[in-house]
Design a protein around this nucleic acid. Structure first.
Length: 497
RNA sequence: GGUAUCGUGGCCGAGUGGCUAGGCUCAGCUCUGCAAAAGCUGCUACAGCGGUUCGAAUCCGCUCGAUACCUCCA
């Protein structure tokens, strides 16, 4: 039995996973900024780390999964002018930050549910932890690694970098950062270009503001994760995850802040998922190629040929290793839809198949192959969460399962124990760990009864060789998206799109 | 410009130096009243050029190409 190894972005290699406290795992994942609707790009980290969470639990760990909501910062909504530009308008016409936060948090939660992502143990908000952030900033100032200018506080990267390996996580060279020629807002306040804000003074028109030792303002971009992760997981915890694009500056800054405030590096294992691309380009606001989740599920987007079921998206994401880029296309998603459907049907067939009575397999080679594919699932998950290979293993089982049903594989070819092992493997990996669900659920009992009636009528028509009638029934149902399948022995089954 | 990552068959994608990844598509066959479904078979690739090695998609070098980060970003 192999042990879990995962790729640590910090060391840039696969490492054996050993939790700080055996049997317990602290997992922190950077959550969304709820100033806009979640999109396809957001789906990847949350599905990726949902599987990480599920698998760690499967291995017997008690996982505390913390995923934050970033609800502080500069808030604007598309199609609506920012508050500072319409200061004179009536209160109800003004942009109320909580309104946006509420709306998009709800939409995000809805999306996560659609994807069948388990809820995190704690979902802290940035605005709910202003005091913790202020405390942490004060601590960093007291230790001499931050300075205040005009009500804003900046982290002294140069000083930090002279003593600690700043840039190691993201492969950055500090001298290059210091030479950046880019002009940025508020740059003149910083002692050095590489410095980053811990606290920002709020200009009069800024609507989100809190009192602090440095005047009214709001927290910087990186401090919330450090403050909240240490509060709920400890100053040093096991896994921190997020998208690759957060490696720099976000996570690099987190390491620097926490190292000074707590005297130790905050995280043992850094995990970063790769990006989803569209036509080879990263999906992002700046590229104008964002597909929102609502659009994805409804098909209401110029780039979409059809709606895509959340489980198809989940399957499509899990078919690729999380550290590879994943290119979006209608073709790829449609292939995923067919593949998931076929795999799930094989699973359902398996569940309905009678367990063979024989303890010995009639086809020893086949039996051994099946067992190997089942056992490989654990090894593949342990190899840095290789969900693509897990799915490939499950697909390998499908021909045998369908073959037993269709009669191409002899009953008794595999042993009863192997049959049970297949059932267990599907249940454990497909449902529990990969978190997949069938595309159509809660089949309506009345619809089923009606269909059984229709099937009965078609059987009768076929029995009297009235093929015109039997074909008509089949064609009319097909037009409604219901496929009838004639099986051996005159039985019929159906599937609904 | 700096720093990384990547380049796999019609498409998507996994790959630990030697053994069929897998999915989708396509073609043929079996089954079937005809279909569909299912099963079987076939399509056998690793950007290019060198090098290391008994042996490289996998290691090294160069070239070309792509992307990402360096700015809010999953």
């Amino acid at each position: 039995m192999s042990e879990l190894h995962l790729y640590n972005s910090y060391s840039r290699q696969k490492e054996k996973f050993e939790p700080i406290t055996p049997g317990h795992v602290g997992l922190y994942v950077c959550g969304p900024t709820v100033s806009g609707e979640s999109h396809l790009g957001h789906a990847r980290p949350y599905i990726t780390f949902d599987v990480v969470n599920r698998y760690l639990q499967h291995l017997g760990n008690k996982v505390r999964y913390v995923r934050n909501i970033t609800d502080a910062g500069h808030f604007e909504e598309e199609g609506r002018e920012a508050e500072d530009k319409v200061a004179k308008k009536a209160l109800l016409e003004m942009l109320e930050p909580m309104e946006l936060v509420h709306k998009y948090t709800s939409l995000y939660h809805w999306g996560m549910q659609e994807f069948n992502c388990l809820e995190p143990s704690i979902e802290p908000t940035a605005t709910g932890h202003i005091i913790e952030q202020i405390n942490m900033i004060e601590d960093i100032i007291a230790k001499g690694y931050a300075y205040e200018v005009n009500g804003s506080v900046y982290f002294d990267v140069k000083k930090y970098a002279s003593e600690y390996p700043y840039g190691k996580l993201s492969g950055r060279v500090i001298d290059d950062l210091l030479e950046t020629t880019r002009e940025l807002e508020g740059q003149e306040e910083k002692r050095d270009r590489a410095d980053f804000a811990l606290w920002k003074n709020a200009p009069p028109e800024h609507i989100m503001r809190w009192k602090s030792p440095w005047g009214e303002g709001f927290p910087g971009w990186h401090i919330e994760c450090s403050a909240m992760s240490s509060k709920y997981l400890g100053q040093r915890f096991d896994i921190h995850g997020g998208g690759m694009d957060l490696q720099f500056p976000h996570h690099e800054s987190e390491i620097a802040q926490s190292t000074i405030a707590h005297g130790c590096a905050p995280v043992n294992y850094w995990m970063h998922n790769n990006m989803i691309t569209i036509e080879g380009r990263k999906m992002g606001k700046s590229y104008n190629n964002v597909i929102k989740l609502t659009e994805l599920f409804s098909g209401n987007h110029p780039m979409l040929e059809q709606p895509y079921h959340p489980m198809v998206i989940r399957f499509y994401i899990l078919q690729t290793h999380y550290r590879s880029t994943l290119d979006f296309s209608n073709e790829a998603l449609q292939a995923s839809e067919k593949a998931l459907r076929r795999l799930w049907e094989a699973y359902e067939v398996l569940q309905k198949l009678p367990v063979p009575a024989n303890a010995e397999a009639a086809d020893a080679a086949l039996d051994a192959n099946i067992r190997t594919f089942c056992h490989n699932c654990a090894d593949d998950m342990n190899d840095d969460f290789n969900t693509a290979r897990v799915l490939a293993n499950l697909f390998e089982l499908a021909p045998t399962i369908n073959g037993i049903k269709g009669g191409q594989v002899k009953a008794g070819a595999i042993s009863s124990a192997t049959h049970e092992l297949m059932l267990h493997t599907f249940k454990t990996y497909l449902e529990d760990i990969l978190g997949l669900k069938p595309l159509q659920q809660n089949r309506d009992a009345k619809l089923d009864a009606v269909l059984q009636l229709v099937i009965e009528m078609r059987k009768e028509a076929r029995n009297r060789k009235d093929y015109a009638a039997s074909d008509k029934i089949r064609d009319m149902l097909a037009a409604e998206g219901i496929q009838l399948k004639d099986e051996k022995g005159g039985e019929m089954s159906y599937s609904i799109d």
